[in-house]
């Protein structure tokens, strides 16, 4: 749930989503859901000459299961807060689950 909440705070930011086949798509983050499916608007494929397949596509839905990385603008990530939230979530988990 933490990463879902985290990605929700990034809605409206410019991000680059790299898929497991090395295809990378840049665009405005429109929405994220609980499966970390990502919706982007105004997309641009990185290395467009190699991947002209999506020329006529302006916005897309990327299934969370095929995402390898999401590149984020560093300025919009509060790492201290994220670390703290991760620790707190760990503490809330029932004992024995490590």
């Amino acid at each position: 749930m933490l990463f879902y909440s985290f990605f929700k705070t990034l809605v409206g930011q410019q991000v680059t989503v790299e898929l497991k086949n090395d295809l990378a798509i840049t665009g405005l983050l429109v929405s994220v859901d609980q499966f970390l499916n990502i919706k982007l608007d105004n997309i641009k494929v990185v290395e467009e000459s190699r991947y002209p397949h999506m020329m006529a596509v302006k916005n897309c839905f990327i299934r969370g299961s095929v995402v390898r990385y999401v590149q984020l603008p560093a300025a919009s990530v509060d790492t201290a807060l994220l670390q703290d939230a991760a620790r707190r979530e760990r503490q809330q988990q029932p004992a024995g689950r490590k």
Partner: peptide, 24 residues
Amino acid sequence: GIIGQIDEELESQVDHDNLMVDPI
């Protein structure tokens, strides 16, 4: 993997008859 909405106007400008490219 991906679902993209096709922009009909942009789509009509794509020259599929001359587009030769390896599949993704």
